[in-house]
Structure formats: structure tokens, C-alpha cells
Design a protein around this nucleic acid. Structure first.
Lengths: 252, 252
DNA sequence: ACCTGAACACCGTTCAAGT
DNA sequence: ACCTGAACACCGTTCAAGT
């Protein structure tokens, strides 16, 4: 019952017996203090386990064992919460040291990283889309893309607009993926998406297409349904990077 | 008070006096019958005048002078309503007769048309993003893009994946624009967006950037903030089309 | 067959009152 | 300074009852 008391720990490290007194960490006294940190942590955990739609000011408050009003002491509103979440995620981006010889592959790597971050944090893409990116985390992505492109000889104007285009595309992809996931496991939340079920649904959809109205979609149904999200993303990254190289001089 | 009675109209057409009895159109008897048509019309009008967020099953019902439950007789749910709305909009796409010589310009034209449709129907991009496109209207865009690309010698696989990429990018642009509009005139809804105010806010944002953390964003602030939505869209369309041409053979 | 009032289980946000 | 109960003005959807 000694809530909040100092904690001791002892263990054997080889021949030595170690005994430390841990600093008085808040270890759940009746009520742990609410902080932005804790709110964002909990929001991310909730989003990861139950999806974006499961995160509301009220459900979040309940997860923190308090009432919705308490959150407004630390977070201006729902919008700012979303912003804090995607900021936290964007900080994990690792921008490579620009290498002029390999700018194209480096740029693709950053795009892949962005996609992976959205993927690892299901629902985060929806939070990213719902806002105009203004926070430090999102700015780092832009700074990194600029560095890679400029080092690679891309004109600054083309590189600058590419930051926009890339961010928009990647978040849209993440958003779309989250829709499939949400739809597919609306019954069993928190599960991995069942790619086979999704594919089956897709194929079904294409088979029902009236050929008189959509001759080409019918003819090229195999191409339209070919590949998974990975393949399509690689294609898109390829198009974006090749396109950037192709038009760079026009926007000098 | 003769609700629902036949209507007569007479007028002078040159020397002739014309008198017609109009067919008994439902002209608002106590209650006009609810139809999908009327529901979608009203939803689009509401969205255009007050934005996507102003359209709810309840507000829509009120605009139709009924209760929310009545809508469910004609529309499965909110999701289907969104689908019907963007289907209606997508039908307005005019696919050009494919001309192999000018496939690139034709493809850009279709992208511009898509962007313009979202722009003309504020909020529709948000409805488009919120769903996996499955309806006839959206399929027409894909059919048209395939026709133009294949005529232009693009490999079917690259063309097929381009349909995805293009739709995703254009709807994301529309979505982002709707966020600015909504933010900017949250006080005065239904107004044209104030581009100067938006630009001023953007510039302000860039000026506050710490140069130690973001040397390139600071150095290239003019490029980062250059151009309006139109310029950026033209750049993106250029990148996408040039990129498609560049990678087409790789995805044969 | 179509419509509807009332209810259910939710939202975000505010504010006065508490510690 | 921080927290909170209660309230306000909303959501989407269902269902039994009405015409």
C-alpha cells in the first residue's frame, strides 16, 4: 500500500551483488499526473490497437482513467492531439547523409520509410491527412527531401514542390490502406489485414464490371488487380523520382 | 391550397398564344416523396454551401424537412451516401477521344478535370478519400486513363497502376484544399477562400522556422512557398506524366 | 411500401465548482 | 495549478409504431 515510496532492486552481476535505490518514479499512486506525454502515448497505443476511429477525446480519457474535460488542460483540442501524434511519429524518420551519386535511391528510401511509419502506426495516416502539416516532425521530412534532391542536382524549385507531392502521396496511400484494414476487420479489430480476403473482394469487383461500358478495364483486369500494396508503392515511387528527374530543369 | 393539382401556363410566342397543361409534376404537395435522387441532390447542395462537415444524416434530413430515420429507407448508411455523391460528380468527367500523338497532354487534361470537379464541389474530395472507389462514376476515370495511356504506347501494367496513383494524388490534393478552405472560413462559411490570408499564414510559418534545425528549408523558403495550388498541381501533373513515360517499359 | 418519433450509444467542447 | 461532474449541442443507426 506504500504508494509512491522509493523502490529498491538488488541483483547478482557476475561476482558482485548490486543494490540500487531507484529514484522515486511515479509508480501509479492513486492518480498518476496527466501530461502531454502520457496523453500522446495513450492515444498512439489506442490507435495502434483499435484504429483511428476508436480514439476520441472521451475514449482516450477513459483509457487514462479520467474524464474528457481533464484532457483539455494539456491539449487544446482534438486537432492538436492529432498533430502531436503525427509529430511524434515523424521524428522517427532517419534522414540519410546526402550522397549525390545515389540521390534517387535515397529519395525512394525516405518515401519507403514514411510509408512504413504510417504502416507501423495504423490510423496515423488519417491523422496526418486531417491536418496541414506544420510541426517540427513533419518539417524534418521536408528538410531531408530537400537535402537529398539538392545534393542530387535537382533544381531547388522542383525539389521544394516535390516535398509537397511526396508527403501528399504517401499519406494518401497510408490513408487508403487504413480504410481497407478498418473495413476488413471491423468485426475483429486489431488484427493483421487479411490480404487474401481483400484480394478476393477486389477480383470479384472486377469480374462484375460490364464489358460494354468498361472495355479496357475488363481487358486489362489482370493488370488492374496485379500486385500488392508494396508493388504499387514501388511503382509510384519510381514514377515520382523518375518524373522529378525529368522535369527538374523546367522548374529551375 | 390546391396542392398537387395540374398546372397551366400560357404565354405569347410571337403571334401565337400558347397554352400548355404541364404534367402533374410533384410540386411540393404537403410532402414531396423522398428519393435517392433528391437525397443526393440535397447532400451536394449542402456540401457546396456549407462544406463536408455540415453534411450529416441529421442535417441532411432537416434540409429535406424530415427526420434522419427516413433517409435509411433509400440509402444504406452514411458511407453509401458519400459514394453516391462522388459517383454523381465523377460522371461529369469528359474523357477525350484518345489521340496517340498527344497522350501526355490528354492525361494531364483528365487530371485537371478531376481536380476541377473536386474544386467545384467543395468537400467532395473528402468524401472520395473516405471510401474505396467502386462505383461506376469512378470507374470511368480509370477507363479513360487506360484508354489514353494505352493509345500513347504506355505499357498496360504501368497504365493500370497509374490509374491508382493519379486518383489518389488528385483526391489528396482536393482533400488538402478543403482543409485550408474549412480552416480559413470557419467563421464565414460558404465564402471563397482568401488566398492572401492563406499565403500570409504560410509565409509567417516559414519565417518562424529555426535555421539551425532546418537550414535548407530556411535557405529555400522562397521556393518552398512559391506558387499557388495551380502551379503546384501543374508541377505534380508534369512529374506524374513524365515519370510514367520514363518507367513504362520497366513494368511491361 | 413508405415514413417517423423516440431511443440508444456515442461525439467534442465548455464551464463552474472543487482540491 | 490542476482536475472534474455535469451540461450543451451535436453524431449515426435502429426499431416499433404509424399511415
Amino acid at each position: 500500500m506504500s504508494a509512491g515510496g522509493d523502490r529498491e532492486r538488488t541483483w547478482q552481476a557476475g561476482p558482485v551483488r548490486v543494490r540500487v535505490t531507484l529514484p522515486r518514479r511515479e509508480e501509479r499512486p492513486p492518480k498518476e499526473r496527466l501530461t502531454r506525454e502520457r496523453i500522446v502515448d495513450t492515444a498512439m497505443a489506442l490507435m495502434a490497437s483499435k484504429g483511428y476511429d476508436a480514439v476520441s477525446m472521451r475514449s482516450l480519457a477513459k483509457a487514462l482513467d479520467t474524464g474528457p474535460a481533464s484532457l483539455y488542460q494539456h491539449v487544446a483540442n482534438r486537432d492538436e492531439l492529432d498533430q502531436l501524434v503525427i509529430d511524434r511519429i515523424a521524428r522517427q524518420l532517419e534522414i540519410p547523409e546526402p550522397d549525390p551519386e545515389h540521390w534517387a535511391e535515397q529519395l525512394k528510401d525516405v518515401l519507403r520509410q514514411m510509408r512504413d511509419l504510417y504502416h507501423e502506426h495504423p490510423g496515423s495516416a488519417r491523422a496526418a491527412m486531417a491536418q496541414i502539416p506544420t510541426m517540427e516532425g513533419s518539417m524534418r521530412a521536408a528538410e531531408g527531401i530537400m537535402a537529398i534532391c539538392v545534393a542530387g542536382g535537382i533544381s531547388p524549385q522542383a525539389a521544394a514542390w516535390m516535398c509537397d507531392l511526396a508527403a501528399l502521396y504517401v499519406s494518401a496511400v497510408g490513408y487508403e490502406e487504413s480504410l481497407w484494414v478498418q473495413r476488413q476487420n471491423s468485426t475483429a479489430p486489431g488484427e493483421e489485414p487479411d490480404h487474401e480476403a481483400i484480394d478476393a473482394e477486389m477480383v470479384e469487383l472486377w469480374n462484375q464490371l460490364p464489358p460494354e461500358l468498361f472495355p479496357l478495364l475488363t481487358k486489362y483486369a489482370p493488370e488492374m488487380t496485379a500486385g500488392d500494396g508494396q508493388d504499387r508503392f514501388e511503382f509510384a515511387a519510381d514514377v515520382l523520382v523518375s518524373g522529378l528527374a525529368a522535369v527538374s530543369e523546367k522548374y529551375r
